[in-house]
Every structure is written in structure tokens, then in C-alpha cells.
Design a protein around this nucleic acid. Structure first.
Lengths: 221, 221
DNA sequence: AGAAGATTTAATCAAGTGATTAAACCGTAT
DNA sequence: ATACGGTTTAATCACTTGATTAAATCTTCT
């Protein structure tokens, strides 16, 4: 059934690849239907035939990239047992993604959505799953702790995505990455400090999780 | 000498006003030379005659706004005696600026500079004075404290501008401002906590400042 | 083989952009 | 008054963009 490609699916993929690459190298402003088509080696009309326009194509590219990256983060992050490890792990991937250009597409589209108000809701809706994801990851490592009472996971998730959104911008604006480096260092220096707050209440050494007994009784030692 | 306007200066001002307003209402993408000229009620050729192009005009608008705002921040912030007050004061102005659209121009140009790499250095150089300003303000309230050892004012300044850059984006992307609100709350909840760190070393209750005796001796009680 | 449908192409359209130019306008100093 | 320099305008150029269309090509099934 799927032995030979449906022909259309292949060009769709090539267009998505070309779109992402063009945005990465030329910036959103330099990403026209013709530029994408040229990079993909096909006729520009196919951008409209398959995706209905340039923006829908770029959003499709963003969606594909977003799914890939979230899967990577999810897998890496599930090993983190506390806040410090969580920040460390996430930062490591994020930093690599930044170098590898995986974040560029997102940044470019965020920038574009600022310039073009009609795009904003599209971008906002695509940021939603990430906020959800970050919130859940945070809740898992600090949920129920004093830190979580001071800074609820949802608010912290906003702060985190906001911060890293800002880091994106800095990375774009700063060629040499000195500042980006300083920002990462900062985040990683703060995390261990904050971790102290996650385990200070005596008699509740570990925040409650899914697997805990519903009545709150402790298992035998 | 300046009794009657030099005629050219007036249209320059009107163009700058119109440019800022157009960016605010139409976004960077909708800000063409013709759109600006129409808003200003003059011929579009004047954009090129007076400023040499659209981008230089927008940068001029940014410069004017930047100077105004920094003066406001400087005046308000100089009263702050500690970190908590500093964050509180700065946040208050920033929040008002956000509502009043004073930040929009900056955000739009940052967004545009992402889409158009040739603009990046222009924006970067204009962010520099702000980093400097924030660093100095921070250094004044936490300089020499344990907190400053953990998080040097320069790094903190990067973090602050990054964070508020992200807040800008969120404000653009989110019409209802719920998240923006949460972010401000967060910052203001964290500041008092961090303040504890600025005054924990016994015998050094106040970080050294400009007016202190150069040899470090304490004045008589 | 050949009909049918999906895919791809080349050609083209209308619209908007930045930028330039020559001519008109204006205040001012001579 | 008049000639001059700075300012403003209308008209226009070359170019790029998103988008559409009719024709050509390829795939697939009968």
C-alpha cells in the first residue's frame, strides 16, 4: 500500500524541509513561495497547491519540528528526579537545539507573528502544549513542596517559556553567544539553590505523586 | 532663531509620530513608507528625503522613545533603596508602559530584526544602554552582597532584559494579558525572597557604595 | 491501451513595495 | 522683485510578492 510514495507526500516533505531551511538561512522576510520552491527544486505553485499558501506551509513545518522536539524533551526529562536535574537536562537539550538551529524556526515565526498580527493566534495555540508540558514536568519534581506554594508550577512554566523565549531573541541578536552563555550559567546556578526549598518541610521529604497510596499512609520501611 | 519652526523639523516629528503609531496599530509588516506618510498626512517621498528610508525612520522613532523611557525609569528607580523596591518600581512603570503601548515599538522592531538579519546589529546596539542601566541599578542595591556573588549584576541584567523581552512577546501573543499578569506577580513574589540574600552576612549590613570611605573604615556610630 | 484523476509546470495577473526624479512650492535674504 | 536653497509633491520606475490558470505530465486502475 505504501510501498511507492503517494508522490504528493514526497513533495510535501521536501517543501517542508525547504521551508524550514530557507527560514533558517534567509530569515522569515526572505522566505517567499519562490524561495522555498527553488530550495525544494519544484515549482512555486506547489506551495499553494499542497498547503494553500506560504504561512500555512511554515506552520506545518513548525508543527513537525515541534512534535519532534517535544518527544526528545519528554524522553530526556522523565529521568530527572528533582528540579536541579530537570533544569540541567532541559538546558542541555535546549542549548544543543539552539546551536543546531532547531529553535530558529520557532523564533522566526514568533518574530513574524509580532510583525503580522493575523498570525498571532496561530503561534499562541502552538505554544500552549509546551506550557502544559513544562508545567507537568515542574509539577512532578516540585509539586506539593514549599517552593510550589511560593511559585506554582503553572506560573513557573510561564516564566520558563518566557525566559527561554527571551534567550531565543538574545541568541538571534547576538552573534557571539556570550550573553546566551551567561544566561544558561545563571539558570543552572539558581536551580540548585531553589532545590533547597523543595525539601525543607520535615516529615514530608518527598512530594506526593501519582503512585502514592490514596489515603496518604506511608509504606512500611 | 527658533521662533518659527525650521519647517523641516516639524514634518520630521510628525513622521516619527506617525511611524510609531503605524507600527503600533498595523504591525511592522503593515508599516510601509506610504502607510506612514498617509498617517502623517504628507507625501511618502519625505520619508526618504528626511530619513533615507523606512527602517532608519523607525530606528529614529525607537531612539526618541528609548531616551524618553530611560529618563523616566532613571528618575523613578533612583529612589529604590533595596532590590525589592527596585523590582517593584521598575515593574510598575514597565507594566504601565506595556498598557500604554510604549513598549510595542521596541518589541516590533525586535521581531522585525529577527525576520531581517540586516537589522540585528542596529537593535543590538540600542539594547546595550539598557543593559548598562539595569546593571548599574542592580549593582547599587545588591552590590557586594552574597546575592551579587551568586548572581553578578551584569548577568542579572542580562536575565532581566531577557525576561522582560519574553514578557513583551507574551503580551503580544496573548490578547487577554492573563499570563503577563502572572509573570509580574511572580517577579514581585520572588524579589522579597531574594532580598534576604542581600543582607545576611553579619557585620556588613549594607553593601559598599560610592559615598563610602575609600579605605573601608566605618564612620563613627 | 486508454480513460480518469492527481500532480506539476510555465505563464501570467494584480497589488504593493522601496526608491527616484522633475517639477512645483515656500520662506527668506539680497 | 527676484533669485536662491530648502522643502514638498505627483508621477513614475523596477522589482517582488502571493495567487491563479490552463496546459502538460505522471500514476493508477480497468
Amino acid at each position: 500500500m505504501t510501498e511507492k510514495q503517494q508522490s504528493g507526500a514526497e513533495t510535501r516533505d521536501r517543501l517542508i524541509d525547504a521551508a524550514a531551511e530557507t527560514v533558517r538561512s534567509q530569515g522569515y522576510a526572505g522566505t517567499s513561495a519562490r524561495a522555498i520552491a527553488k530550495a525544494a527544486g519544484v515549482n512555486s505553485a506547489l506551495v499553494f497547491y499542497h498547503f494553500g499558501g506560504v504561512d500555512p506551509l511554515l506552520l506545518a513545518a513548525l508543527d513537525r519540528s515541534s512534535e519532534q522536539r517535544m518527544a526528545a524533551y519528554r524522553q530526556a526529562v522523565q529521568k530527572a528526579g528533582n528540579l536541579e536535574e530537570l533544569v540541567e537536562t532541559a538546558s542541555a537539550i535546549y542549548r544543543a537545539d539552539l546551536e543546531g538551529g532547531h529553535i530558529t524556526l520557532f523564533s522566526e515565526l514568533v518574530g513574524a507573528s509580532i510583525a503580522r498580527p493575523e498570525l498571532r493566534s496561530e503561534i499562541t495555540s502552538r505554544a500552549e502544549p509546551w506550557i502544559e508540558f513544562i508545567e507537568q514536568a515542574l509539577d512532578r519534581v516540585i509539586g506539593g513542596s514549599p517552593l510550589a506554594r511560593l511559585l506554582p508550577p503553572r506560573d513557573l512554566a510561564y516564566a520558563a517559556i518566557t525566559f527561554y523565549l527571551g534567550v531565543n531573541l538574545f541568541t538571534h541578536l547576538d552573534a557571539d553567544r556570550t550573553r546566551t552563555q551567561a544566561l544558561f550559567d545563571l539558570a543552572e546556578r539558581v536551580a540548585p539553590r531553589a532545590r533547597l526549598l523543595t525539601m525543607r518541610v520535615p516529615g514530608r521529604r518527598r512530594p506526593p505523586r501519582e503512585g502514592d497510596r490514596p489515603d496518604g499512609t506511608a509504606p512500611a520501611r
